[in-house]
Design a protein around this nucleic acid. Structure first.
Lengths: 207, 207
DNA sequence: ATCGGACGGTACGCTACCGTATCGACGTCC
DNA sequence: GGACGTCGATACGGTAGCGTACCGTCCGAT
């Protein structure tokens, strides 16, 4: 029920017999509209009608793809948030951190993302479905990255073994998220550098 | 316009001539209802009618106090978030941090706060009025606390002078906020202790 | 050439809120 | 006792969105 989004076709879906498939261009227009609408009014106020209006599409076209606002939003955001980001080995914990922070900062500073992410995170506190989806898409990803990063540092001898990956993630992502999505302060290169140094020290100290 | 919330009486308001004042018990019932409603549906979906229903009060009573949902919410939340929290000097940076984290954790873990705060922060990204209010009430407060805390540490010689208070606030509040309000992980005493140690190290390293 | 299905558009009845107005009941001050 | 203002309650017309059911059109597969 939660994974089955009616009959979305990212590509496939064989035409049953006659013809006519859901047109991908229209699906894409709707996806874009969902994101724009999410950014401008948030999940709570998002309405199917407004999405259809913005996509310049009939309500019918939307309901043909998803049964509800929740289904629609889940499919759209998980498609985006599920992308894994590679994290090359820079040779040092400090370097890995700085790179990670830089990549994360770029992503978080995207105007649409910086509106949608806090909104969905807040909504996740009320809606288990959303929480689950974000958990799978975002946190899972971040935890993996954190684990890899720490694993390397342990191998290099920069950190002792036996680490709590969740606590590490808090230390790594927390300050940046606060800075960008909450306090909404400026994020300079120099700031990211200091942040990386601070985080490296924090990780080393939190055994 | 933004500071004048119609004619709210926290206490005063002299009866003009005849008599009959807005009854404080009712104002209080509405305030409670606003918070409960904010927690359960968020600012976006919050409706005056639902607030009145929950407070077991006529819509009239609400409109008599505030002209709009925005005014109402701003007055209610700033009344709560504006409370300054004292921060006794424990004698060491590490101790001050641990105490601060403990107090903040208690506040953030309150079930109503943990629903409302992320919601309003997300909404603040769209609504300048809300952003301004939260800025004044929350961040101002936190920055002050951070400044005091760092000032003491500098006096003690635990930290070098010339600190960016905003960056310090990111390091102090960020991880905890992420842990509680976003990742929603458990927060044990032991966790807070490790966090305080990590943050102290981070502060020392981020010159 | 025919058929099937997705398309935009429109209309439907229904519900929820909006913000305002008006009502009688009650308390409080003059 | 009279005046006044708040109280809950109810009703008002207006707007918005819901989810469904139809149109007639277009297009690709048979």
């Amino acid at each position: 029920m939660s994974t089955e989004t009616q009959r979305v076709s990212t590509e496939a879906r064989r035409p049953p017999a006659g013809a006519a498939v859901l047109r991908e261009e229209i699906t894409e227009a709707i996806r874009t509209a969902v994101l724009a609408e999410l950014a401008s009014v948030g999940y709570g106020r998002l309405s199917i009608e407004a999405v259809a209006r913005r996509a310049a599409v009939g309500k019918t076209a939307v309901y043909r793809r998803w049964n509800s606002k929740l289904e629609m939003v889940l499919e759209v955001v998980s498609g985006i948030a599920g992308q894994r980001l590679p994290l090359p080995d820079t040779g040092s914990l400090r370097g890995d951190l700085e790179l990670l922070l830089r990549v994360a900062a770029r992503a978080l500073q995207h105007p649409i993302a910086s509106q949608i992410i806090p909104d969905l995170l807040a909504e996740a506190a009320r809606n288990p479905q959303i929480a689950e989806t974000l958990q799978a898409a975002l946190h899972g990803n971040q935890r993996d990255v954190g684990l890899r990063l720490i694993g390397r540092a342990v191998e290099r001898g920069e950190l002792p073994a036996g680490y709590d990956p969740d606590a590490a993630a808090d230390l790594i992502v927390g300050p940046l998220y606060w800075r960008i999505a909450v306090a909404r302060g400026p994020v300079s290169d120099e700031y990211l550098g200091r942040m990386a140094a601070a985080t490296a020290a924090a990780l080393a100290a939190s055994v």
